Simulated assay, not measured.
Amino acid sequence: MEKGLKKPRTGIILGKFMPPHLGHQYLVDLARSYVDNLTVLVCSIQSEPITGDFRYHWMRSIFTDVNVVHVTDENP
């Protein structure tokens, strides 16, 4: 952080993470270095080839120190 700027307290990342890869790892690691509390939203719809529930648990096992939330949307 630049001198004199306060560190943000919270941050959010959203994505499908289908599947999680090194780019996602880099993104989460970078975001964690900028905020005190990070939330990662795993967004899904039922028709995707890798279930949202599976990706949610996948992300939780990889990023144990961030808040991972599964968000579904089945709007037509």
Rank of each mutant, 00 (worst) to 15 (best):
M1D: 11
M1N: 11
M1T: 12
E2L: 13
E2W: 10
E2C: 05
K3L: 10
K3G: 05
G4T: 04
K6G: 01
K7L: 03
K7R: 15
K7N: 06
R9G: 10
T10F: 13
T10D: 14
G11T: 13
I12T: 14
I13Q: 12
L14P: 03
L14Y: 08
L14V: 08
L14I: 08
G15W: 06
G15Q: 02
G15H: 07
K16Q: 08
F17M: 03
M18W: 00
M18G: 07
M18V: 09
P19N: 07
P19H: 07
P20Y: 09
P20K: 09
H21N: 08
L22Q: 05
L22P: 00
L22N: 02
L22V: 01
G23V: 01
G23S: 04
L27N: 01
V28E: 03
D29K: 12
D29P: 02
D29G: 08
D29S: 14
L30P: 00
A31G: 05
R32D: 00
R32W: 05
S33D: 02
S33F: 00
V35Q: 06
L38V: 08
L38Y: 09
L38P: 09
T39P: 01
T39N: 05
T39I: 02
L41S: 00
L41D: 03
V42I: 08
C43E: 02
S44H: 02
S44T: 00
I45G: 00
Q46N: 11
S47F: 07
E48F: 06
E48Q: 13
E48M: 09
P49D: 14
P49Y: 13
I50R: 12
G52V: 07
G52F: 11
D53R: 13
F54A: 12
R55Y: 13
R55P: 14
R55C: 14
R55T: 13
Y56P: 03
Y56N: 05
Y56I: 10
W58Y: 15
W58H: 14
W58D: 15
M59V: 15
M59D: 09
I62R: 14
I62M: 15
I62C: 11
F63H: 13
F63E: 10
V66A: 07
N67F: 01
V69G: 02
V69N: 00
V71I: 15
V71F: 11
T72D: 06
T72A: 08
D73Q: 09
E74D: 14
E74V: 09
E74C: 07
E74P: 07
E74K: 06
N75F: 11
N75V: 13
